[in-house]
Amino acid sequence: MEIDPFIFRLSIFILSIFIGYYVVWSVTPSLHTPLMSVTNAISSVIIVGAIIAGLAGNSDSIFNTSSIFGFLAISLAAINIFGGFLVTQRMLAMYKKKKKDK
């Protein structure tokens, strides 16, 4: 009997939940806001699906209903990717230690 490939993806999914569980518990509470903005940015990797959808049209008609939804999704995800990573970087740059020379 062959194993359905779905089971492999499900395994990856479940294991990743466990990884997420342990990794996120180790995040220091003072960085919880950057955690939210960065998870937001990485969940926009959904752009992968949007690109596939956008490029699905044939060369005669780039714009059909399906690909237009893809293009719109690309823009939405791109707002998140750029916005999310940049705002995280901006926040993290502000976390400074006490100056030692004081």
Binding site: P5, F6, R9, I12, F13, I14, S16, I17, I19, G20, Y21, V23, V24, L35, T39, N40, I42, S43, V45, I46, V48, G49, I52
Partner: peptide, 18 residues
């Protein structure tokens, strides 16, 4: 899962549990 894309599955699980 629909796209059979590992990066999305891993990320979704991470963000979901976070």
């Amino acid at each position: 899962f629909t796209l059979e894309n590992t990066a999305l599955i891993i990320t979704g699980a991470l963000v979901g549990s976070s």
